[in-house]
Amino acid sequence: MEFVLQNFINAMQWGSFYALIALGYSMVYSILMLFNFTHGDIFMTGAYIGFGAATVLLFLTASVGISVPGWLLLILTILISMMLTSLLGIIVERVGYRPLRDAPRASAAITGLMIGIILETGNLAVLGARRFSFPSLIETVTYNIGGVYFTNKKILIVGVSLFLMLLLHAFIRKSRWGMAMRAMSYDYQVVPLMGVSLNMIAPMTFAIGSALAAAAGILYGMAYPVLDPYMGVLLGWKSFVAAILGGRGSILGAALAGFLLGFIEIFTAMIFPSTLRDLIAYTIILLILTFRPYGFFGQPYTTQLRL
C-alpha cells in the first residue's frame, strides 16, 4: 500500500511538469493552429533565468547582510523568471512566427525547432561546458508518514502547479483578455475584423505560455537541481505528447493529460521492469489515441476549438 502511495506522490510531482509545459503548447495551438516547438527550450531558458535570478538575489542579500527568508527569495525568483521568460516568448513570436504567419504550417514548425536549437547552442556558447547546480533556496525537509517519504519541495511543486493552472483558468474564463483569447481561438481570421488585434493576442498567448514554462523550469530546478542546455528537449517532446493526448487546443485536456502521462510513466515502471517503461507507457498512449484520435477533449477539424 505504501508502495503505491509513494509512487502516487512521485507521479503527482512528475506529472506537474508535463501539465505546466503542455499548457503552453495547447494555448498557442488554439490561437495560431501551430505547435510552438521552441517551447521545451523556453522551459530550459526559464530555468536558467531562474538560476541567474536566484544567484543574484542570494549574492545581494549576502552582501547587504540582511537575512531574507528562503520562501520570499523563491517567490521573487519565480516572478522574475516568469517576467523575463514571457518577454522571450514575445520575442520568439515576433521574430520567429509572425513573419511566417501566412506561410505553410510546416515552415513555421521548422522555425520553432530552429529557434530551439539556437537557444540550446547559444546557452552552451555563452555559459560553456559546466552544468549548474540550482541553488537550494528553501531547506529540504523530508517527511515520513507510515513509510511514505515526501519532501516539502514535492508539496510545493504540486501546489504551485495547481495554483497556476487555476489562475490560468480564471484568467481565460473571467477576464476580458481571456474572452478575446477564446474568441480568437474560434477563428483567428474573422475575429480581428471585430476589433481584436491578433498582434496583441498572439504575443500575449506566447507570454503566458512562456511564463508557465518558466515556473515549471524553476520548480524542476528545485526537484532535479542539475541544469543542462538540453534539459528541455525530451521533456518538451513528452509534454507535446500530453498536449495531443489532451486534445489539441484544450487547456483542461492538456493539464489532465500531463498528469496522466506522469502517472502512466511512473506506474509502468512500478509494475513492469523499468527497462520496458517507455515502450509500455507510450504503447498505452498510442492505444488511447487509436480509440480517441482527437485526444480527450479535442474535436475533429474545427472552428470549435475551445479554450
Partner: peptide, 20 residues
Amino acid sequence: YESFTTKDADFSSQLTKIKG
C-alpha cells in the same frame, strides 16, 4: 536491477522499487 533512459531526470519509481 533497474534501468532508465538517457536524459531521464526522475528516478523516483525505480528508487522506490530499489528501496522496497
